[in-house]
Design a protein around this nucleic acid. Structure first.
Lengths: 244, 244
DNA sequence: CGTAAATTTGATACGTTTCAACCCTCGTGG
DNA sequence: CCACGAGGGTTGAAACGTATCAAATTTACG
C-alpha cells in the first residue's frame, strides 16, 4: 500500500537553502525576481477584495497597512487580522475558491498582485518560492493560534497590551519605528479583534497610560507612544503568568 | 520593475482540475497515488511530534482523532485544534523549522507521514498536490478565524454548542455517525480550547442537556448524543444573533 | 475494591458589559 | 468666523456572566 508507482522525490535530497528569519524580505525579493506581478496602489479604506467574490489572485504587501474583516451575521464587521509589508493577503479564498473575508487598506499602500495559478506555475521552476508561500500561510496560522490563546487566557488589559506589543514587534521586524505607532484603528475595532468592548479597550489603554507603559499623542489618540518596548514586553509577560 | 527575467508561467493557462468539495478525500487519494509515505500506527495519548523538536515531516491522518496543544508558560497545556481523517498535522513547524506545538492522538489511529522536502518535490510533477496542501493549510486558517470569532462574541453556552456542532459537522463530512460522538476530552480540555473554565463547560453541557439539544451517554459523559443536528445548529444560530 | 481523578452543583467574588453622561475633535454650513 | 452636529473617546454606576472556591458525587484505574 505504501509504494506509489511514481518515483518523484525518492532520490537523495540535497540540502535546501533555508529561509531567512525575515520572511517579509524574502517574499518581496523572490516575488520581484521570479514572478510576474501587477502593481496596485490603494488609498485609505479602499477594499482589496470583498467577501463572497470569487478568488483568483494573491496580494503581497509592498507597503502600507491592511486588515481583513469578517462579516458577522448582525451586519457589523469584525477585524480578523492585521498585515504589514511583506505579508500576503487572499489566502482565505483558496479552500473554496471564493473569499470568506474582505481585505481593506488602513492607510495608503501598494500591493504586488499575482494570479494564484501563475504563482503555482512559477514555483515549479523555483521551489524556494513555494516554501516561502507555505511559510507565509503557516505564519498566519501561528499568529492566529497566539491570538486565540491570548483571547482565552488574558484579561482585557493584558490582551490590549499584547496586541500593541505584537504590532510593535511586527514594525520592528521591518525596520520601522516602534516608539510611536499609529494604529489607524478605533477603540471599537481593536475591541472587536480582541473580543472586548470599546469601553474596555479605552479603560485598558488609560490604565496602561497610568503605569507609564504607553502614552498618547496629543492630536490623535490612535497614535501611541511606547517609551520602552521592553517595559511593555515585561508587562505582558507578568500578565501571562500571574499564578506562577 | 515588473518584468522578471524568468518566464515561467507567462503563457496561456489551461484550466486546472478544481478541488472537490471534500478535501479530506482528495488528500488521501492524491497522497496514496503520488507520494511515497510511511505508515505509522499510534495509540491513545501517543505523541506525533513534540513542541520544540525540529520539523521535517508532515502527517496526513488516515484514521483516528488528534489534537495539537500549546504549552502555556504556566506549564499547563492548552489544546489549539482538533483533527480528523484527511487532515494534515505538522504545519506549525514550517515557518521556523521547529515545532511550536505538540500533536497527540486522542485515540488509536494511523498516520501517513511524508518528509516535507519530498512532498514539495512530488508536487512539481503533480501540481494538484500543491493546490491541495495549500487548501488544507488555508482551511485550518479559516477554522481558526471561526474559533477566534466565536471566542470573541459568544457566551460560554454558545461556545460549547458551537464546538460540538463543528465537531459533528466534521464527522458528517467524513461519513461518520453524528448522533453519538465521543469527544475523548475532559471538560477542562474543552474549556481550555474555548477559553472558559471546566466548571463552565460542565454547566453549559448541563443546560444543553436540559433543553434536550444533547444527551449524555450512561457510562461516559464524554460521549454525547445529538438527537437532531439541526436542533443544535438552530441553537447556535440563535445565539449568534441575539439582538434584533 | 480503594484511591485518585473527573464531574456536577452551589455560593460568592470579580471583571467585563451595558447604559449613560460628558468631553473633545473635526467638518459643515450659516 | 463661529455655531452646530456627528462620531469617537473617556469615565462612572449598575447589571450580568464567568471565575473561583468548596463540597458532594461519580468515574477511572491499578
Amino acid at each position: 500500500m505504501n509504494t506509489p508507482s511514481i518515483a518523484h522525490g525518492a532520490g537523495a535530497l540535497e540540502p535546501v537553502r533555508p529561509l531567512a528569519h525575515l520572511l517579509w524580505r524574502d517574499s518581496l525579493a523572490l516575488m520581484k525576481q521570479f514572478v510576474p506581478f501587477t502593481q496596485r496602489k490603494v488609498r485609505v479604506n479602499e477594499e482589496v477584495y470583498v467577501c463572497g467574490k470569487p478568488f483568483d489572485t494573491l496580494h503581497l504587501i509592498s507597503s502600507g497597512l491592511f486588515k481583513i474583516v469578517n462579516l458577522v451575521p448582525d451586519g457589523r464587521e469584525q477585524p480578523a487580522g492585521f498585515f504589514f509589508k511583506g505579508d500576503w493577503l487572499g489566502f482565505d479564498g483558496i479552500p473554496t475558491g471564493s473569499h470568506t473575508c474582505s481585505a481593506m487598506a488602513l492607510d495608503m499602500g501598494e500591493l504586488w498582485s499575482v494570479r494564484y495559478d501563475i504563482l503555482l506555475r512559477a514555483s515549479v521552476g523555483e521551489p524556494q518560492l513555494m516554501r516561502l508561500v507555505m511559510a507565509a500561510i503557516s505564519s498566519q496560522l501561528a499568529r492566529h493560534r497566539d491570538v486565540s490563546l491570548s483571547m482565552g487566557t488574558l484579561s482585557a488589559d493584558a490582551r490590549v497590551a499584547d496586541f500593541i506589543l505584537h504590532w510593535a514587534l511586527s514594525l520592528e521586524e521591518r525596520g520601522m519605528r516602534t516608539d510611536e505607532i499609529d494604529l489607524h484603528l478605533s477603540r471599537a475595532e481593536i475591541g472587536s479583534y480582541l473580543g472586548v468592548r470599546s469601553e474596555s479597550v479605552s479603560r485598558a489603554l488609560s490604565r496602561l497610560k497610568g503605569t507609564g507603559i504607553i502614552q498618547f499623542q496629543e492630536s490623535s489618540h490612535r497614535v501611541i507612544r511606547i517609551p520602552s518596548l521592553d517595559g511593555l514586553r515585561e508587562f505582558v509577560q507578568r500578565s501571562t503568568e500571574p499564578s506562577r
